[in-house]
Simulated scan of single mutants.
Amino acid sequence: MKYVSEFRARDLAEKLAAQIAHEVRPDRTYHLMEFCGGHTHAIFRYGVQDLMPENVKFVHGPGCPVCVLPVRRLDDAVELAEKHGVILCTYGDMMRVPGTKQRSLIRAKADGADIRMIYSTLDALKIARENPDREVVFFAIGFETTTPPTAVAIMQAETEGLENFSVFCNHVLTPAAIGHILESPEVRDLGTVKIDGFLGPSHVSSVIGSEPYEFFAEEFAKPVVIAGFEPLDVMQSTLMLIRQINEGRAEVENEYARVVTREGNLKAQSLVSDVFELRQSFEWRGLGEVPYSALRIRDTHAALDAEKRFTVSEKKSREVKSCECPAILRGVKKPTDCKLFGTVCTPDNPMGSCMVSSEGACAAYWTYGRFRETAKEAEEAAA
C-alpha cells in the first residue's frame, strides 16, 4: 500500500538504526520530545525506542487535545448537558475523561443527560436539524487539525439558519504550547525536563505549515523536524535531529514533505481566520495558563457561541488525587512514575485523560506493554 508499507520496511529500519548508532556521540545524551501522541504510539507500537542507542531518549509531550483539556472545561460541558438540558455532541475520546470527582460525560449520560457521541461535525448538524425544538451544542476540541471542520460547521449552520445549534469551542494551538514548555516560569516551578529537539506534529503542520516553527526554533535555539507517523518517518526524523544537534544547528526541517509544505493549507487557514480569533489566555492541563494558545469564536458569529448563549457556574475543579497526568504531559514524568498507573488507573477505570485518549502516553504504555520494566530499568530506578 503506497505511503504505508514502504514506511514500515524492516531492512530500511535496520539501516536507519545503524546510521543513528554511527552518528550519535557517546559523550552526550539526546533528549527528543515528540509533541504529538501519534508519534508516541508509533514509537511504542513498532519498537522504535528499542532500535535507538541508549543515549537517545524520547520525551513524551502534551500528546493530544483530549489530554491537555483542563478539568474545568470538561466540568462546564457536563453542566451544559445536565443543567441546561442541551443535546451535547462530542467525539468519543471525550466521553470517558474524568472531571471533578471523576464525573465524566459518559457518567452524566448514564444519569440521564442527553450526550451523544459523534464522528464528525456533520453528525452534530444533522442532530440539530432533526431536533429543531432542542438546543444542540457541539463540544469542539482539537489542535489546528480539527479546527477547519468546526469553522465549516459554524458557517453551514448560519447558511441553513439553524438557530438551535451552537459550539463550545476548545481548540488549542501547538506552537504556543511548545514555547511555553521551554520558557514559562510556572512550568519550570512544576518541574523541568531536558529537551534538545522536537519531533514536530505532522497532521497539525499539514494545516499550518512548517513556517510557524521557524521563529520558535530561532528564539529558543531548539531544532524541530516535522515528522510523519510511520516508524521510518520517526526514525528518519530522529536522525535529522541528531545531525542538527551534533552540528549546533537549530532549524526547522520537514521530513513529512509528502504532506506538509512550508505555507500549509492556505484555504483552511483563511477559513479558520474568518470564524475564530485568538484568546488572550487559555488553561492547558499540565501547563497552566498559556497566553495566546487557543481560539474563540469571533463576535461576528457570536450567535453560535455556546459560551455566550449559556451561562455556566463558577466552580472549583480539581484533578483526580495522585494522578500524575499533568507532569506526564510536560514530559517531566513517565506513566510508570505514577503510582496509580496499572493499579487503580487502567483503561477500564481511567483516572486521567492520558489513559483515556487513544493518543495518550499512559494508553500507549498500557497498550504496548511498556509498563513491564526490564530488570535493568528496575535496578536503575532503585539506584
Rank of each mutant, 00 (worst) to 15 (best):
S358Q: 12
S317K: 04
E23I: 13
V97T: 08
K126T: 09
P149E: 04
G197D: 11
S237C: 08
Y213K: 15
S281Q: 10
F310K: 01
G331I: 10
V193C: 09
L80E: 07
E373W: 08
T145Q: 05
H60G: 09
E373D: 06
E54I: 02
R73Y: 10
V71Y: 04
A250Q: 02
V234S: 01
T311S: 11
C89P: 04
V48K: 03
D93L: 12
D11Y: 14
S317M: 11
C64T: 02
T100D: 06
D233E: 12
T192G: 11
P98S: 11
D50R: 14
M355Q: 04
L51N: 05
D11K: 13
Y30D: 12
L125S: 05
G360Q: 04
V193E: 15
S202E: 03
E377A: 03
E230L: 02
D93F: 14
M95D: 04
D93P: 11
L232D: 11
E135A: 14
P291F: 08
E255S: 15
A9C: 13
E324H: 05
H22A: 13
D274H: 02
D348F: 07
R298A: 00
L239F: 06
A21Q: 13
E186Y: 02
A383V: 12
A13Y: 01
E218M: 06
K376P: 00
Y46Q: 00
N170A: 13
T147F: 01
G142N: 06
A382D: 13
G47P: 03
A177H: 09
L105N: 10
V137K: 06
V71N: 12
A363G: 04
M94P: 13
N170G: 02
R285P: 10
G197V: 03
I87W: 09
E160R: 06
